[in-house]
């Protein structure tokens, strides 16, 4: 029989938490090895960044949802960190297989990569809890429970001062690396992608414009694809 929305949400939350029980809140041995294999070990930067972003996230969550909800913000962040480590490890294993390399120093020392990945993990967690939802006009902040729309995507981008263009880069790899994501969550991330592609990435100040300018100046823009493709 079809589940009620409450039952469906509770099931999703149980599945997410169950999935992440075996994932630690610290880098696993495998992930720590990837960090140590880097030309510059990113471990300390990763941990420091998580501490800072955790405080920022919890405070902003409390501001958006209610001061008594800062504790829930910390819970969401803790789950997000577990998912972040889990997906990062899966991504690196996949890249190691694809590229036959074990030193991912440039990637793992890129703070934008880490912020994007963490933001995606948190978006998954908040979507699972129903806090980030495009139903009831979430993105346009129209209708529905005000608390549910206040942390709806792209709220997380503002919290982390993250460009939508950079967040977009991790979405597909995230979905590939975490096959246990539910249909609803994948749909949610796909909607985030579409929003970015159609609107947010084209806002003033997006890094996309500078990249397009660089591509144009390098002559790459001459290779134009026919409209059919």
């Amino acid at each position: 029989p079809p589940q009620t929305p409450i039952r469906a949400a509770m099931t999703s939350i149980q599945l997410l938490r169950g999935d992440l029980t075996s994932s630690g809140d610290q880098p696993s041995t495998v992930l720590a090895t990837y960090f140590k294999n880097c030309t510059v070990d990113p471990t300390q930067d990763v941990l420091k960044r998580l501490e800072t972003l955790g405080q920022v996230f919890s405070q902003r969550f409390g501001q958006a949802v209610g001061p008594r909800c800062v504790v829930y913000g910390r819970q969401r962040f803790a789950l997000g960190v577990r998912l972040y480590y889990k997906v990062m490890e899966a991504m690196l294993k996949s890249e190691e297989k694809r590229l036959s390399v074990q030193n991912f120093s440039k990637l793992l020392n890129d703070s934008t990569f880490h912020k994007s990945l963490l933001a995606c993990a948190l978006e998954v967690v908040m979507s699972t809890y129903g806090e980030s939802s495009f139903k009831n006009g979430g993105y346009n902040h129209g209708g529905g429970d005000p608390a549910e729309t206040n942390v709806c995507f792209p709220w997380i981008l503002d919290v982390f001062s993250l460009a939508a263009f950079d967040f977009y880069k991790v979405i597909e790899s995230f979905i590939k690396a975490e096959p246990t994501l539910s249909k609803d969550i994948v749909k949610h991330l796909e909607t985030c992608e579409n929003l970015i592609m159609e609107r947010i990435a084209w806002r003033t100040g997006s890094p996309l414009f500078e990249l397009l300018k660089q591509e144009h100046e390098s002559g790459a823009a001459e290779q134009v694809e026919p409209p059919a493709s």
Partner: peptide, 21 residues
């Protein structure tokens, strides 16, 4: 995978997207 369209080619991955050739 739930009708999601995977656009990255076999030679493309997170390393290329973050300019880590």
């Amino acid at each position: 995978s739930h009708d999601y369209h995977f656009g990255l080619e076999d030679h493309e991955g997170i390393s290329e997207l973050f300019d880590c050739d």
